[in-house]
Design a protein around this nucleic acid. Structure first.
Length: 802
DNA sequence: GATTTACGCCTTTTT
DNA sequence: GGCGTAAATC
């Protein structure tokens, strides 16, 4: 059977490509996963390579899993050997578990997550007696990560990246690396870097792996970073059968070190590379594709390709302006409701730039009883209770894992307090000795305070007991013993008794279940821990879910019938923190492109001038996203709500500026020049744009070229007349008035009394237990039938009397 | 040393 | 309105 029969000519050309490098430029929805899967199957079936000599790398577990399933469908099931299809990170872990001893680590190394990393940096900061106002752990970490990924060792840091804090960072970086190594642990970056190092330092080993993996395929090549690139180079030392698939227009991980240059210069890096373009899109309607193309055409950093489709043109894209974020949510959910009524099998997604936007949509969906799947909250393995238990396992497995030990040494509380820990930690660091070993010394040290020593002894006895039992005990049983010994569930119950507790206990149970399943699959403890470290929330997105909520980043690679792109506002999208340079702006635009191209048949783009950022009172109107301006007016219905007017009525167009976080933004006129003024009140200035002007919708005039000024493309959204300006101002004022927190009224007298039955948006129905003054507001304690007792601030709770 | 309360910050994106 | 850390209190 010709397994390639279902492919179009360029897809087929790619799948049949023989030896040598190849670059497949695959536009959104052009079937790139398909091409990789078919190529793997083809290589194996045509006898070019044995399956086990094929390596395919992806970025997410989800993509790897999908790929595996597709390949399995194409090849006969039940082969003894299978191609290795894995993420970069799991491939590296696999490699390192075998080879890391060559770098002076033990094979039982731990993988530090962000929490662990932060803890480490924080300790060093404390030790240095530095205000963490000056240097935030997160910032330090990202600078360290940046240095590591650019091959800059600690002692070269300050010279290479001079700044007033560079010396401090260099010092922290140095300690950080020392302690990581001292804990026999690797951080995320290390997984790649150490893999590269081990291959680089051992040419024979490198050759061995390169010989083994005769054919290497890479998905999402545009997202590779420098170490990933280095790794691929090393793995291709004895051949150049590197087949990469990517789309420069979907490169959205620069902040994480992805280097779009890798895909742009592939042909230079791998001379003789065959380049294949996949430009036929099988996913979206013509209109959606054109809109996406028009937006991304504003980017300069691209190889350029034009997607086309045989799909119908479809409906116009709909642009919706709402008065508030809540209205936006109601509007979107209303559409979803109708969509699902028409077609219960439809798959719908709400996509946003920042995760914080999900809440309002969750509220409204819950309220209306529409089930949804949220990607990106706290992942299962990120839950505190799960991490606690796993930390126990980590310590048993790698006794040098200080970060894990610090996490569990007083969880549950066993009388080993912060002061004691701090003292011991600095001593351990000073001596360069793992914390657990120091604990052992102290437990037997007669000079040490007996109370603490006793506590240590009890703790160590447990650890020793588990360590002894580890061999030959199934992980799940081991974990069950741990949980019992430390009375973990009891601790959870003691902490708080609410539905949340049950949830936590359920999570602990689920972890045991996961351990048992892992065991059944024949995985080792290490493999179980590795999977926990490398898994993410996206991996378990229910593909059956009708409504999915996620960030634009998470949405890459997915597709939906209907997509709502919400929060299309300047400052939010493009995000203010990503609008400083043209390169960042281009990345935001690619993100927008990714969002648009997720939609199969219908796309909504939504915005509101009044999105409450944080806390009440910061209500400055925001401008609609410039990406809306970049969409062709004739393909988008509803754009006229942001009606452009005559260009010259009120002088030059207002410059577009990012929104500044922290205090709203505004523009004030000073000395005849528009400039940013964070404190300018919007009422004091002419509006930057007009919307919802009654009647006279005017098509958006064609935009000619781009204004490449540093401030971004200036657009013409001017009020058309004084009358319109007035009505605009009135609208704004009305909106602002209704925008005040309900507090003002509530504080006067909400009429709430103890014993009353009330309803809460999220918590459901309940009874007021207590109501007491607090400042110029009331605090109410309510027992909800669903979630139990909660104390709420009346002005925020928006309780409805029943 | 542990628990409770207050405050300040938040909002990039994540293998 | 939530979360995490710092300060206050037992």
């Amino acid at each position: 059977m010709d397994i390639l029969a279902g492919l179009n000519p360029p897809q087929r050309e790619a799948a049949e490509h023989g030896e040598g490098p190849a670059l497949v430029l695959a536009g959104a929805g052009s079937g790139k996963t398909r091409v990789i899967a078919y190529r793997i199957a083809h290589l194996a079936q045509a006898g070019a390579a044995r399956p086990e000599n094929i390596l395919a790398v992806t970025f997410t577990n989800k993509a790897a899993k999908e790929m595996r399933e597709r390949v399995q469908k194409l090849l006969y099931a039940g082969r003894s050997a299978e191609p290795l299809i894995s993420t970069f990170h799991s491939f590296c872990v696999r490699l390192l578990r075998r080879e890391i001893h060559r770098l002076g680590y033990k094979r039982d190394f731990s993988i530090y997550d962000t929490d662990d990393q932060k803890r480490l940096v924080k300790q060093t900061l404390e030790e240095m007696k530095l205000d963490d106002d000056e240097l935030k752990p997160r910032e330090v970490l990202s600078r360290i990560s940046f240095a590591k990924n650019h091959g800059v060792p600690p002692d070269g840091y300050a010279t290479r990246f001079p700044s007033d804090t560079a010396q401090d960072v260099e010092y922290i970086y140095e300690r950080y690396e020392e302690r990581l190594h001292g804990s026999n642990s690797l951080d995320f970056d290390d997984l790649l870097l150490k893999s590269v190092a081990v291959l680089k330092n051992n040419p024979d080993l490198c050759k061995h792996y390169s010989n083994w993996y005769r054919y290497i395929l890479v998905d999402e090549y545009q997202d590779t970073n420098r170490p990933q690139y280095d790794l691929l180079r090393l793995l291709t030392t004895s051949h150049d059968n590197l087949f990469v698939v990517g789309d420069e227009d979907q490169s959205i991980y620069k902040f994480r070190g992805a280097d779009i240059g890798n895909i742009l210069k592939f042909e230079k890096d791998f001379p003789g590379a065959r380049v294949i373009r996949l430009e036929q899109n099988y996913r979206s309607c013509g209109t959606i594709l054109k809109v996406a193309g028009a937006v991304v055409a504003n980017n300069t950093e691209r190889k350029g390709k034009t997607l086309w489709t045989e799909n119908p043109e479809g409906e116009k894209v709909s642009c919706r302006r709402s008065d508030t974020a809540r209205d936006e949510a109601y509007m979107v959910v209303g559409h979803i409701r109708r969509t699902l009524e028409e077609n219960p099998d439809a798959r719908v997604a709400i996509l946003y730039r920042v995760g914080a936007l999900s809440r309002t949509f969750e509220d409204v969906l819950t309220q209306q009883g529409i089930p949804y799947a949220l990607v990106g909250s706290v992942a299962f393995f990120g839950r505190a209770e799960v991490k606690d238990i796993l930390a126990y396992l980590r310590v048993i497995f790698n006794p040098e894992d200080d970060a894990a030990l610090l996490r569990i040494v007083n969880t549950p509380p066993r009388g080993i307090g912060k002061t004691t820990i701090d003292a011991l930690t600095s001593e351990a660091i000073g001596k360069g000795v793992p914390l657990l070993r120091l604990l052992r010394e102290k437990a037997g040290d007669p000079q040490f305070p007996t109370r603490s020593a006793k506590a240590f002894q009890r703790f160590l006895e447990l650890v020793d007991k588990w360590t002894a039992a580890q061999e030959g005990t199934p992980v799940a049983n081991l974990l069950a013993t741990v949980i019992q010994d430390i009375r973990y569930k009891e601790m959870l119950q003691k902490e708080e008794s609410s539905p949340e507790t049950e949830n936590r206990i359920a999570n602990v149970e689920e972890l045991l279940q996961a351990a048992a399943e892992s065991e059944q699959r024949g995985e080792t403890v290490a493999e179980f821990l590795d999977r926990a470290s490398l898994s993410s929330e996206l991996d378990k997105l229910d593909p059956e879910a009708r409504v999915a909520l996620m960030t634009l980043h998470s949405a890459k690679g997915l597709e939906f019938d209907t997509v709502f792109l919400v929060g299309m506002e300047e400052g939010l999208f493009p995000h203010s923190r990503s609008s400083a340079s043209d390169a960042e702006l281009q990345e935001e635009r690619r993100l927008c492109y990714v969002g648009i191209t997720r939609a199969r048949t219908k796309l909504f783009v939504c915005w509101t001038p009044f999105r409450k950022t944080h806390g009440p009172g910061a209500g400055f109107p925001s401008r609609h996203s410039r990406f809306l301006d970049e969409m062709p007016g004739e393909l988008v219905e509803g754009l006229d709500a942001i009606a452009p007017g005559d260009e010259n009525v009120y002088g030059p167009p207002f410059p577009q500026r990012p929104m500044f976080t922290g205090g709203g933004y505004g523009y004030g006129q000073h000395g005849g020049e528009w400039r940013e003024d964070r404190h300018a009140d919007w009422r004091d200035r002419a509006p930057a744009h007009v919307h919802a002007v009654s009647g006279a919708p005017k098509p958006v005039p064609p935009r000619e070229g781009r204004d490449d000024a540093a401030t971004g493309a200036a657009t013409a959204n001017q009020p058309k007349s004084i009358a319109e300006l007035k009505s605009y101002l009135e609208k704004m004022q009305q909106a602002a008035a209704s925008y005040r927190p309900p507090a003002a009224k509530a504080a006067a007298d909400s009429g709430l009394r103890e014993g009353m039955r009330v309803r809460h948006d999220r918590f459901g129905d309940g009874i007021v237990l207590r109501r007491e003054r607090s400042g110029d507001d009331y605090k109410v304690t309510v027992t909800f039938s669903l979630v139990g007792k909660k104390t709420l601030v009346e002005k925020y709770a928006k309780l409805q009397k029943l």
